[in-house]
Design a protein around this nucleic acid. Structure first.
Lengths: 135, 135
DNA sequence: CTGACTGCAAACGTTTTGCACGGTA
DNA sequence: TACCGTGCAAAACGTTTGCAGTCAG
């Protein structure tokens, strides 16, 4: 139901336009999408959809902590709805990206003790072959 | 001495042109540079230097495992001379990037046991404030 | 001497911008 | 109704390509 997305959009100070609802839904259902994939998917619903609208919305959604950008080595950048901190697994064959939760507390402690930086966050991406591509 | 860079370039099957020597040296001395930073630095030595030359060389150097691309969340991509696997620390204020070695064997084991992917490598970037920016 | 590299200019793809119109709250 | 969001077209970027001349090996 759209009400669900309307509410979470409003909770993030975003007006609930049909395009934004569709973006939220697409990211929610697909997990991780690139700008181009988002555009292709939504173009089916809104034939007049403009790429500029996708760009503008993704950026405003990132600013409002509603969406998070995920940069993957040697692949296109993808976007996801913001969740608790987690890591990512990316398939080097097909590009599919999924979430993975690993315990990083030790790693963070080690990094803090070894460096003079005031560490705020960390970003971990595993790359490999997904089950589908292995088969 | 240039001989040093000439040799490592040749070891990577790359002809040792003055531009390539300068790129190697700049990356070696500065650690991590973006395309633009590289261009600005080398432009001083080679006033006729073309951006296209930087792009072409960086790519051929990546293909020959001489240079590695480092993608940093919300920052410009930087390049470094290829070394053993290591992680990175990036300053969210000034953009400065440095290497850090942390033990990731446990994390890798955990990821392998939790996922059906055939994990090949991992990429870890810490973001925070560097000592200079803290002061 | 030959093939590879450079610099230039043009082409390309992606992202951003300005503006008039339309829709949300 | 007032303001914000949308779509369009153009502009601005960053990156790539083709080509003629030059250089490394």
């Amino acid at each position: 139901m759209d009400t669900y997305y309307i509410n979470i959009l409003r909770q993030h100070n975003l007006k609930a336009t049909p395009q934004r609802i569709a973006i939220s839904q697409a990211l929610d259902k697909n997990g991780h999408l690139s700008i181009e994939e988002l555009y292709e998917k939504l173009k089916q619903k809104f034939s007049s959809l403009s790429l500029a609208t996708i760009y503008k919305n993704i950026h405003i959604m990132i600013e409002n902590a509603f969406v998070t950008e995920v940069k993957i080595p040697e692949q296109k950048t993808v976007y996801e709805l913001t969740k608790e901190a987690h890591s990512h697994l990316a398939c080097s064959k097909c590009g599919y990206v999924e979430d993975i939760a690993v315990d990083l507390s030790e790693v963070i402690m080690e990094a803090k003790s070894k460096s003079a930086y005031e560490i705020e966050k960390l970003n971990l991406v595993f790359t490999g072959i997904c089950p589908k591509c292995k088969a």
